[in-house]
Write a protein that binds this DNA or RNA. Structure first.
Lengths: 198, 198
DNA sequence: ACCTGAACACCGTTCAAGT
DNA sequence: ACCTGAACACCGTTCAAGT
């Protein structure tokens, strides 16, 4: 199906092959190792052949970030039997773990902000939780606050000298709890406004 | 004074000349434009001559970040006549403005975390305010929370498409206020522990 | 000590050409 | 349509040599 064009054409590669190679390079050598030439060498092709699948390096990097965000399981955060605080805590910890597992991914996302379907799915999951929490119109700002803290936090952790990883997790949880306290205080404000609109 | 060594030597450059050139390149072309060869060309010297003043590019970049942090005026944040909330708000807004004025500086700091005297001065100013706020042992974690949010926030703002700058400032202030609410709630907790130690 | 010229080992990207 | 070889315009860094 689809318009495969002429049938006699070679398509030795797929976009996924390229993203897999990029992911492997990211895992082995960090963000600096994610290189068009390195990807090409890893999939056994000339460097410029990569440009058949992606228009430029930025597109490859966005695809890579998308691929990473596609690995998060949303179901655990939409379960309404848990409190919104617990759900956001779990959400933040899961994404942090995913980003920490791929050092350099944060720098890639900060320099080339992704905006594909997986990215939007993650954004909407977070927005749904915040709406459940009762943040109303401020849900978007709260989402921005959490994303911002998450990326900044992981970027710092990767750049900083490797001290005790358990202490870093504790520090991250502490920060998230302060954030949640701040959001909870604002929820109370919103509630007051809503019950006394004038 | 000092040990200038042999008097007949040329010293056409200073470390400051190199940092000034790097700052100009950062202002003109962003983080990617900060390049050893570009700096050398701008100060009128062969590329490898830069290695006489700095051991490698990372050192230049750290020096550049240091230079930027040296521009913040600490006095405005140590004034005890203002509330700690106002002082942290001013601190965050000032640093954000300084970083936004030099697009790319955040990426430089995130990839090469600075640790010179100006960096430490900024850190200690923030710690002092947080100690004033009554955060006690949690001051370090709170400082980390604010730094993390600040850098992540600015990185996001620079990477995102240039929408209304005033709206972005409003969003930033909103986020800082949520953070302060969260910290204030924790101050109350600390106070309770201190007045009832057993 | 400070600077130069030349080189090494890389980059991303483009172009012309082959199938 | 997809791939190759060759090239262009860059990087950071090192080395040997000059003063």
């Amino acid at each position: 199906m689809g318009k495969t064009g002429h049938p006699g054409r070679r398509r030795t590669l797929s976009e996924q092959d390229i993203l897999d190679a990029a992911l492997a390079l990211l895992a082995e050598g960090g963000a600096d190792a994610v290189t068009i030439r390195g990807i090409a060498a890893r999939v056994g092709v000339a460097p410029n052949a990569v440009y058949t699948y992606f228009p430029d390096k930025a597109a490859v990097v966005r695809g890579l970030a998308e691929h990473l965000l596609g690995r998060v399981n949303h179901d655990r955060f939409t379960d309404p039997s848990q409190s919104w605080r617990d759900r956001i805590r779990a959400f933040a910890l899961e994404l942090r773990a995913e980003l920490l597992a791929h050092p350099g991914s944060v720098h890639l996302m900060l320099s080339h902000p992704p905006d594909g379907p997986h990215t939007q799915a993650v954004r909407e999951t977070l927005l749904a939780i915040l709406a459940d929490a009762g943040l109303g119109r401020a849900a978007a700002d709260a989402s921005y606050l959490i994303n911002t803290h998450l990326l900044g936090s992981v970027a710092f952790e990767i750049a900083a000298p490797p001290d005790d990883p358990e202490a870093r997790t504790t520090r991250f949880r502490w920060a998230v709890d302060r954030l949640l306290d701040g959001l909870a205080a604002h929820v109370a404000t919103v509630r007051v406004e809503r019950s006394a609109p004038r």
